[in-house]
Amino acid sequence: MIELGKTRLVFNPYGGKMSQILASETPFPHRAGNLFKIQYSVNWEDAREDSEKNYLTQSIRLYSYMTPFVYKNPRSAFLNYRDLDIGVNTFGDNSYEEGKVYGLKYFNDNFDRLLKVKTAVDPENFFRNEQSIPTLPSKA
Rank of each mutant, 00 (worst) to 15 (best):
I2Q: 15
E3M: 15
T7F: 08
N12D: 15
P13W: 08
Y14R: 12
G15E: 06
G16S: 14
G16P: 06
K17T: 11
Q20K: 06
L22C: 05
E25I: 00
T26C: 06
P29T: 09
N34R: 02
A47I: 11
A47S: 14
A47Q: 13
E49W: 04
D50C: 12
N54R: 14
N54W: 08
I60N: 10
I60L: 14
L62A: 01
Y65D: 09
M66R: 02
P68V: 09
P74A: 03
S76C: 14
F78Q: 07
N80T: 02
N80M: 07
D83P: 06
G87R: 02
V88G: 01
V88C: 08
N89P: 00
G92A: 03
D93M: 09
Y96I: 12
Y96E: 03
E97M: 00
E98L: 00
G99K: 00
K100W: 03
K100I: 00
V101N: 02
Y102A: 01
G103N: 02
K105W: 00
Y106L: 11
F111L: 14
D112C: 10
L114W: 01
K116A: 14
V117W: 00
A120G: 09
V121L: 10
N125S: 13
F127E: 04
F127L: 15
N129Q: 12
T135L: 12
A140C: 15
